[in-house]
Simulated assay, not measured.
Amino acid sequence: MKKIYFLCTGNSCRSQMAEGYAKELFPSDKFEIRSAGVEKHGLNKNAVQVMAEDGVDINQQYSKLIDLNYFNSANLIVTLCGDARDKCPVIPPQATSIHWPLPDPAKATGTEKEKLQAFRKVRNKIKDNLFELVQNYK
C-alpha cells in the first residue's frame, strides 16, 4: 500500500483539505492518506465548512504533528506551504516530494464572507492539484 502525507504549518486548513479530497479520490485499498503539521493549530471551522459545501466531510479529522515513522515510510510527501517545506525533516530517499505553495486561508482578513472566499479559493486549488495528482501518481 502506498502512503501519501500532506504537510503544512499547523495542520488546520490546507493539509486537512488535501487529506479529505485525497481520501475521496484515491482508492483506499491501494493508498493510505494522512496529514500533519510542523505545529498543531486545531481543525479550522472554515475549512470544515468549505469542504462540506463541496460534499467532503472532514469534521472528524484533527490536527496532528508529523509522525516520523509514517513520514519515513511515506511514498509521497506533499508540502502545502513554505513553512512546512522549510521545517520538514529530510525527505526519506524512497519518497517523492511535491510542493504546492498555497497561501494560508486562516490568515485572510476582512468580513466572514471574504474569509470564506479565501478558504474556497485555496480549497479549489487543492482540488485541482489533487485531480492532476490522481492522474499522474499511481
Results as ranks from 00 to 15, higher is better:
G110V: 13
L68V: 12
L76P: 15
W100G: 11
D29K: 02
L102Y: 07
P89K: 08
C81P: 09
Q117F: 07
T79L: 12
L76K: 11
R123V: 05
Y62F: 12
F31I: 11
T96C: 05
D128R: 08
N69P: 05
N44L: 07
L130E: 08
L116G: 02
K107A: 15
N59G: 08
V38G: 03
V38S: 05
N44Q: 10
A36F: 09
K87F: 14
V122E: 05
N59P: 01
N46G: 06
I98T: 10
E39Q: 15
M51R: 01
G82K: 13
Q60S: 15
A52C: 01
P92D: 12
K127Q: 01
Q60Y: 03
D104H: 08
Y70P: 07
S63C: 10
H99I: 14
K107D: 12
L130P: 05
Y70Q: 07
T96E: 15
P101C: 12
Y62S: 14
A47F: 01
V38L: 07
E39A: 15
L43K: 02
S73H: 10
I126M: 03
V90H: 04
N72V: 14
K127L: 03
L68A: 11
T96F: 08
V50S: 04
Q61I: 01
K113A: 14
K87A: 14
T96S: 09
D86Q: 14
Q94G: 09
V78E: 04
R85D: 15
A118I: 10
N75E: 13
V38Y: 00
P92K: 11
D67W: 07
D57N: 08
N44T: 04
E53I: 00
S97H: 15
K121L: 11
P89W: 07
P103C: 08
A84R: 04
D67C: 07
K113H: 11
A95E: 09
I33S: 00
D29T: 11
C81A: 10
D86K: 14
D67E: 05
D104P: 12
I58C: 00
P93L: 11
Q61T: 05
V48M: 00
N75K: 05
Q94I: 13
I98G: 09
N75A: 08
L130A: 08
S28A: 13
E114G: 09
C81E: 07
L102T: 03
D128H: 11
N129I: 03
R34S: 10
P93R: 12
I98H: 12
N72I: 13
N44R: 01
K45H: 13
H99D: 09
E114Y: 06
N75Y: 10
N124Y: 03
N59V: 04
K115D: 05
V38P: 02
N59F: 03
E32V: 14
A74N: 09
P105I: 05
G55M: 00
S35P: 12
A74G: 13
L102E: 08
K121G: 02
L102W: 06
A47W: 00
I66H: 01
D83T: 14
K30Q: 15
E32G: 03
